[in-house]
Simulated scan of single mutants.
Amino acid sequence: MNYILIGDSGHGKVIEDCIRANGHQVIAKLDDKYPSLFKMGSYMKGPITAIGNLLDVNTKVVISIGHNAIRKKIVERLQLKEELYGTVIHPSAIISPSSKIGYGTVVMPNVVVNADSLVDNHVILNTGCIVEHDCIAGNFVHISPSAVLTGGVIVQEGTQVGARTSINPTIQIGKWSMIGAGSTVIQNIPDHVTAVGVPAKIIKERGTFGD
């Protein structure tokens, strides 16, 4: 299988390593910092609008941008059918057979997703994070490296959980919020806020898409 990455970024490099670890290859890296389509080594590079020239039945697309709101805006802009998006899971990840991983989602090395969890579409499960049993990670969520969602946690659309954060069982975190790195979340967090600390406390209201 071939892949097109949307976003020529450091995050994209890690996704490419995951793709290669599965025996597949990246054939193009598209980013609007490039004014026109050109070849660089084994890749085609160019603006996002060049995607129509590169898609075929053997090619999948992944949005390789860590910023959740930008990832959503690009998905809305492209208007691709869901079957054109790839799901990339590094072979070192441990995924329960009773869990579900959505399209466009990337699961980095050493991630654990345990029983009956739902990881929705265009989610980033970053290196070494743990999603325990019966959790839900909504569309465009980013669970940062080494973060832990204990059992029954719900993280709603667009929220980012910072590196090494721990979220207590059955906690719910609203849409488009940010949980700062190293936090411990012991109570529910609403939509559109930033919360940090041990225990996590709200320090800032955020925009509609967490900007």
Rank of each mutant, 00 (worst) to 15 (best):
V148T: 10
P91F: 00
I94V: 15
R164W: 04
E76V: 00
M108S: 10
S117P: 01
A69W: 01
Y103R: 12
S96M: 06
Q156C: 15
S99V: 06
V57A: 14
R71V: 04
G46P: 02
C129S: 11
E132P: 08
H67Y: 04
V153N: 12
Y103M: 12
L80A: 13
P91N: 06
K100P: 02
L78M: 13
N139A: 10
E132Y: 08
I51M: 05
I65W: 04
S144P: 02
Y43Q: 10
E132N: 12
D120L: 13
D120H: 10
V61K: 08
V123Y: 15
L54Y: 07
I154N: 14
H133Q: 15
T105H: 03
A93P: 00
V75T: 07
A69G: 13
I124P: 00
V123D: 09
H90C: 01
E76Y: 01
V161H: 04
L125P: 01
N68C: 08
A115M: 10
S98L: 11
T127F: 10
H90D: 14
S98M: 08
M108T: 00
V161M: 10
K60T: 04
V62F: 04
G102L: 03
F140Q: 08
G152H: 07
G162N: 13
I95Y: 02
C135Y: 12
K45G: 02
I101C: 06
T87G: 07
A50N: 04
I48S: 07
A115N: 11
E76F: 03
V161W: 02
N53S: 15
N121E: 15
G138R: 00
V155A: 07
N126M: 11
N114Q: 15
R164Y: 12
T159N: 05
N126Q: 11
G138E: 13
V111D: 02
I136S: 12
A93H: 03
L84R: 15
P91T: 01
V107H: 03
E82M: 13
P109Q: 14
E82F: 08
Q156I: 02
F140V: 02
S99A: 15
S99W: 05
H133Y: 12
E82D: 15
N121L: 00
K73V: 05
A69S: 13
I101A: 05
I89W: 12
I143K: 00
K72G: 03
I74G: 04
K73F: 03
T49P: 01
P145S: 12
I74N: 04
V153L: 10
S146W: 04
S98N: 11
T49M: 11
P145W: 10
V57E: 09
P97S: 13
Y103W: 08
K73S: 11
C129N: 10
L55H: 09
